[in-house]
Write a protein that binds this DNA or RNA. Structure first.
Lengths: 158, 158
DNA sequence: TATTGTTATACTCTATAACTATA
DNA sequence: TATAGTTATAGAGTATAACAATA
């Protein structure tokens, strides 16, 4: 069975049955969810990535933690963290304080403005979460999260 | 209830209940699956990203397609595609031919080596897929994919 | 005029290696 | 010596704007 010649329209492309059904579906969904997150914030006149949100939550709940501790918790290199903190600090959401007990480390804390902003960010994230789960029943959402964990557990990296 | 002071160990961090349960779980799983993909290829002495794999499959199944068509199918800008193709072409997996019918476009094709390599890549992807689905029954895998699609459909971006 | 591919430019995320201040 | 944070550097993914060739 010959395939029709490639057209200009992307809709006509033969995607075949990608062997990577599960991985492919996961990637597409993750990408769409990321876009939804960005759109939710953008529409509200805010700008934040899921990673930045997670970082702010971690700092709020573990005030005074060091950059190394935070980097480990996020699974990134300490050098990667530096420009990310720079940006958040430039936005006055977070600050680096000198640790009184260990001169090598910085104690990270949200600023009052950061704490306030995080309240708003959290409500935006809830809105986003509500939408992406909107076509799932409560039971399905639970199943989904449990399946995600199972897949993650089947991975080499864990 | 006060929280214990932050320790050096990441394991002691208070992650609280991130409001973004679903999005967060999705992100972590996607990240672990990506790492597994990379590890599978690396162990076999190969190097490829899921995106590159998808691109090669698309070119194989739609030989002669243009860069614009491919970019649209991948959901990326045409300028983004250029260095990606450059790299694949430098690896002699793919080539840009002049289109005989439209002087502005390139007709993309896998090289014979690229076609051969893709066979091997496909078997590596199957191995990877098998592992990430290893803790799921067949029914669960189907459910999982259908839930992924439902989540994607609930998104703004689609 | 409109489209295709390319280049220049600019962010962001990611890492490794080397430097500094401190322990 | 070892650790924490920073800087320099580099590669990959992403985009916009401008340009040349072609339609």
């Amino acid at each position: 069975m010959g395939r029709p010649p490639a057209k200009t329209s992307a809709a006509n492309l033969d995607r075949g049955l990608l062997p990577s059904l599960l991985g492919y579906a996961l990637r597409r969904t993750q990408s769409a969810v990321f876009a939804d997150f960005a759109a939710t914030f953008s529409t509200a006149g805010a700008a934040l990535t899921p990673g930045e949100f997670g970082l702010l939550v971690l700092v709020e709940r573990n005030a005074g933690l060091s950059q190394m501790t935070l980097a480990r918790a996020l699974g990134i290199d300490r050098s990667t963290l530096v420009p990310i903190l720079d940006r958040l600090q430039a936005r006055s959401l977070l600050e680096r304080r000198r640790s009184p007990t260990d001169g090598r480390t910085h104690a990270l804390e949200l600023t009052p403005a950061g704490t306030k902003a995080l309240v708003r960010f959290t409500s935006l994230v809830r809105k986003h979460e509500k939408r992406i789960a909107s076509r799932l029943s409560t039971a399905e959402t639970e199943t989904f999260i449990s399946l995600l964990e199972k897949v993650r557990a089947g991975t080499r990296s864990i």
